[in-house]
Simulated assay, not measured.
Amino acid sequence: MFKNSSKIMFIIIVMMGTMMAVSANSWVNSWMGLEINLLAFIPLMNDTNNLKSTEASLKYFLTQALASSILLFSVIMYYMKMNYTFMMEENQSIKMIIMTSLLMKSGAAPFHFWFPEVMEGLSWINSLILMTCQKLAPFMLLSYIISKSFSIMISIMTITIGSLGGLNQTSLRKIMAFSSINHLGWMLSALMINSNLWILYFIFYSMLSASIIMMFNTSKLFHFNQLFSNNNSIMMKLSTMINFLSLGGLPPFLGFFPKWMVIQQLSINNQSMLVFFLMVMTLITLFFYLRMCFSSMMINHQNSNWMINVKNSYIVKIYLFNTAISILGLPLMTSMFYMM
């Protein structure tokens, strides 16, 4: 009871730190919000059932502390030369340093090396927080100082690393980590065009990631070979396949809608080469999604007669609900988009 209440308290503090960083009117206050977020998230990472949680906590702390030190150093340099505002058109070098520290905090390439290793030592719930909530504050701060040329370079590197890094992985947490890095490139491309566009992408990405991680958490899946074990029903495998394809952005699933919006806005802004690169690298991501799905669906297995009734299973109902959202979401969102 006490353990659950302490976790809830730390989650609330994490949210407060994020809100403080996002709503701050100076860089020092934003830095303080990021530090509150960091110090509240580290106790959540400790898990007695996972021997790697201590190592993951230490790696996360060292990386985030380094990024915070770079951010604070660059902010002090900025205050020595300019006024107390977010606008930095007159000093590009300090602007790049601040962007580098924020990209390191979010796990974008080439500052991504800590992200898969930390994910490997976390539970699925903490992994979801790291993949979604912990990226909100750095990206909101990036929106104030975004540089188009630097963002294009980082987006290309991030999408390349996220696509190629997941090819040889057998751990589901590392696969989700490299998938998150790939989506970071899409969000950075969206942020370069429109601040509201990346928020839309972030919401859809969080929903789809939460549905997949909820399935993994309830079924206690952590490795690739568990996807085609005897304990998993064909309904769960089909639902996992659909949600993975939706996360990869394959039409006609819901995950294609935010990518569609990003592609449309980038094409309008004459970024056709970036659009082509984004789509090619996303095909590689879909390849290792399909590799997992086809392996789990096509390998012969036998279902025991004493397995739980599919119709009365609470877990299967959750799978069906997530699958219905992924299948029906795109037509509904498309119709709403054209009605507005």
Rank of each mutant, 00 (worst) to 15 (best):
T285K: 04
T158P: 12
A109F: 15
T334S: 12
F276Q: 04
E120C: 00
S26W: 08
K135N: 02
T158K: 14
F222D: 10
G107A: 03
S296I: 03
N50C: 02
A324W: 15
T323P: 12
L320D: 07
K259P: 12
E89K: 13
P110E: 10
V22W: 12
S155N: 13
F73W: 14
Y79K: 07
A67K: 07
I125A: 07
L34I: 09
S26M: 08
F244T: 05
K317M: 12
M235Y: 14
L66K: 02
P116E: 02
Q271L: 10
F2K: 14
Q92M: 15
F294V: 05
Y78T: 04
S26R: 14
K95M: 11
P138Q: 08
S180N: 14
L250M: 12
L102Q: 05
M235G: 00
F337I: 02
F276T: 11
N309H: 11
G329E: 04
L167R: 06
Q64S: 03
K81D: 03
M153Y: 14
S296R: 13
K317A: 05
N217R: 09
L247V: 07
Y314H: 10
M140R: 09
T334C: 03
P251G: 05
Q302H: 12
I97W: 10
M235L: 13
S127P: 04
T170G: 14
L283Q: 12
I36G: 01
M80G: 13
F115N: 00
Y205K: 09
N46D: 02
M88L: 14
P110M: 05
L122A: 00
F222Q: 07
I145K: 00
Q64F: 00
F41H: 00
F86S: 05
F216S: 06
S151M: 11
M131T: 03
N50L: 06
P110G: 05
I12Y: 05
S147D: 15
G166S: 10
M131S: 09
F115T: 02
N182L: 06
N322I: 01
F288Q: 05
N232A: 00
Y319S: 12
T48Q: 11
W306C: 00
M215W: 08
I145H: 07
T323W: 14
M140Q: 08
N196I: 08
M281D: 02
L102G: 03
A109Y: 01
Q169I: 01
M1S: 09
S326N: 13
F10A: 02
T132C: 07
S295V: 02
A137T: 02
L130M: 13
M279R: 05
T334E: 02
F277C: 05
G165L: 07
P43W: 04
P116F: 07
W124A: 10
I161N: 01
L164I: 13
L188E: 04
L283W: 12
K311A: 02
F10D: 03
M45Y: 10
F139D: 02
F61K: 09
Y314F: 14
S149D: 13
S335D: 01
Y289G: 03
F256A: 06
M15F: 15
V14R: 01
A210Q: 03
I125C: 05
F111A: 07
L191C: 09
I42E: 02
L283D: 00
N232E: 06
M19F: 15
P43R: 06
K3I: 12
S74Q: 10
I129W: 11
F139W: 14
